[in-house]
């Protein structure tokens, strides 16, 4: 019999170890649409999986079977879910220790990482990892695993979702986390995912609580330095606005900073459409409508013409900002229970 972590092929139909499982065929219905002409190996493995699931059978053998199927279809959420249940059942019955099984959570995590590198756009792999780490209650090495993934795709949504969960679950709002984001942004200051994570760990996690002293100032400085290195990068501009909002600091405090990148009377020196955008807001707030409009016209005509209709809409709203309540002042939709 093959050991469970080997690549050795198992013929489920003839291997005596599987004789006690009754394979169940797949019912695709009569004359089905978009039927898939599966490889016979997949058909066989899936029919044994259905047989295993039907009797709720959890043994080390299931690890081999589910790994086989995942190797052919990594998006098979049912198989991932069943594998996790099997792992938990094995642990509870000391099944990992069995010399034939010879499995451990650590081996499982290494195997998952190897699958993750093959299938980057996949929800299930990272969710499986999350379930395991949650169960083990130990994040050791996990940040390093996600860093490895960022090396090939620094904006992988699933990996970032996992990283956020990890940081929140184990309260990893620490210097290492901040340093990692700094490093990622140093490599690519346009990595919006890293900006998002930075916001999460510095301010977003706080909810309605106030940030510690100095955090707002530090983040403003950080964003401004990033802007200076590439003024047409939207990420730090959005970040800067968000930090000011969180710190209840008036947008108008950015006026001089923005004018540095978008002196609207010296058009040739305009280096950032985002600065123009914010300036139009600031001029609007301070009642300087003609300058606000001038900024919007420049955006529509020259610096961001595909958004012309949006800039026109913004012009339409000039002077009305004080009438627009913010979301928090309004009553949300509540579906009360009676």
């Amino acid at each position: 019999m093959a050991s469970y972590d080997s690549d050795e092929e198992v013929d489920y139909a003839t291997d005596p170890a599987w004789a006690h499982i009754t394979p169940l065929p797949q019912d695709d219905g009569e004359n089905p649409l978009a039927q898939i002409a599966y490889h016979p190996d997949y058909v066989l493995a899936m029919s044994y999986l259905r047989g295993v699931m039907a009797i709720n059978y959890h043994s080390a053998q299931v690890l081999k079977l589910t790994a086989d199927i995942i190797g052919m279809n990594a998006a098979h959420y049912t198989v991932w879910g069943y594998r996790f249940k099997t792992l938990v059942a094995l642990e509870a019955s000391n099944g990992f220790e069995d010399e034939k099984t010879n499995w451990s959570w650590r081996k499982e995590l290494d195997w998952v990482q190897s699958i993750a590198k093959q299938y980057e756009k996949n929800y299930q792999i990272w969710h499986h990892r999350q379930l395991i780490i949650d169960h083990l209650n130990d994040p050791t090495g996990e940040r390093e695993r996600t860093n490895e993934m960022f090396a090939s795709d620094s904006k992988n949504y699933h990996v970032w979702t996992y990283r956020q969960w990890l940081v929140k679950r184990f309260n990893l709002f620490d210097k290492e986390e901040l340093d990692t984001m700094e490093l990622l942004l140093k490599e690519d200051v346009r990595n919006n995912s890293a900006w998002n994570h930075r916001y999460f760990i510095t301010l977003g996690r706080l909810g309605t609580d106030s940030p510690a002293d100095g955090v707002i100032d530090r983040e403003i400085k950080f964003a401004k330095v990033a802007i200076s290195s590439a003024p047409q990068n939207p990420s730090p501009w959005n970040y800067l606005k968000a930090v000011l909002r969180k710190g209840n600091i008036d947008l108008a405090s950015l006026k001089a900073f923005c004018e540095q990148f978008a002196p609207i009377d010296s058009e040739d020196e305009i280096k950032s459409s985002h600065a123009l955008d914010i300036l139009s807001e600031i001029y609007d707030e301070t009642g300087d409508f003609s300058k606000a409009e001038q900024a919007l016209v420049l955006l529509a005509a020259k610096y961001d013409p595909v958004r012309k209709n949006y800039w026109r809409y913004r012009k339409r709203l000039l002077g009305s900002s004080e009438n627009v309540p913010t979301a928090s002042e309004k009553t949300p939709i509540v579906h009360a229970t009676v």
Binding site: N196, G204, R205, N238, P332, I333, H335
Partner: peptide, 29 residues
């Protein structure tokens, strides 16, 4: 109740960028 709190949940997914993420704090997408 299946609709309880669902609008508030969606609201909590609007991010610092103004867009909306997969869940609270996730990047706008």
């Amino acid at each position: 109740p299946l609709l309880d709190g669902v609008a508030e949940y969606f609201k909590s997914c609007q991010t610092w960028e103004g867009g909306i993420g997969a869940k609270p704090n996730a990047e706008a997408h």
